[in-house]
Simulated scan of single mutants.
Amino acid sequence: MSKCHSELTQREQEMLKIRRDSDTKAAELVKMERMLQQTKNLLDKKTESESKEDLEEKVRSSRRYRRNSLHHTQMLESQMKTVKGELVGTLDHLQELRNVLRRSQQKAEERKAAMEKLAAGLR
């Protein structure tokens, strides 16, 4: 029972870590969108002769980073859903085990009462 509880606690910790990672990636996405907008604004301000190609590469790089970050965030969310599903399954299993334990304890108490009754009858 404690093994299941520790496994459940471990899964909850993993889920919290995934959530934190997801929040971090979301914040990074917002930051990258701001950087992308700033880069675009700089590109608009610069003349054709200034390093337009460098700025375009930064925009492409920012877009790649944003796509990668989005993909990573989606993977983390998928992992979080998987862990959540596993936690639900573990919880269901723990509830089943608790019910079995209750029934076993009840049967043991009934047998003990029957044994005491038999013992009293033999006296």
Rank of each mutant, 00 (worst) to 15 (best):
V59Y: 00
L42K: 12
S2W: 04
E48R: 04
K45W: 02
T39S: 04
T9A: 08
E14L: 05
L43P: 03
I18A: 14
T90C: 04
M35D: 07
L42V: 12
T39H: 00
S104Q: 14
R123L: 05
T39P: 00
D92Q: 05
R20H: 13
E7H: 00
K107H: 07
V100R: 04
C4L: 06
S22Q: 11
L29Q: 11
A114W: 00
Q74T: 08
L97N: 11
K117G: 05
N68M: 06
K25M: 08
T39G: 03
M32I: 05
Q13E: 05
T90Q: 10
A119Q: 15
S6G: 09
V59R: 02
N41P: 03
R103T: 11
L36E: 01
D92C: 02
R64Q: 15
M35T: 06
L36A: 01
K81L: 04
R64N: 15
L101N: 14
M75C: 12
M115G: 04
L118W: 02
E48T: 11
S69L: 02
L87M: 13
E14M: 01
N68W: 00
Q37I: 02
A120D: 07
D44E: 13
S6W: 01
H5Y: 03
V83C: 02
E53F: 02
S104H: 09
E57L: 05
Q38D: 06
V83M: 00
L42I: 11
K31Q: 07
E57T: 08
V83P: 00
Q38M: 02
G121Q: 06
K25I: 06
K3R: 12
L122H: 14
T90W: 00
K84M: 10
E7A: 01
M15V: 09
L94S: 12
K46R: 03
R66L: 13
E14W: 00
G121R: 05
E33P: 01
Q37T: 09
T39F: 00
N41Y: 01
N68L: 14
M15N: 10
V30H: 10
Q10E: 15
S22R: 11
E56R: 06
N99S: 13
E48W: 02
S2M: 11
G85F: 00
A108F: 02
M15C: 12
E12T: 08
D44N: 13
E28C: 00
M75P: 05
L16Q: 14
R63P: 04
L94G: 11
N99C: 07
E57M: 04
L97H: 08
A108V: 03
I18G: 14
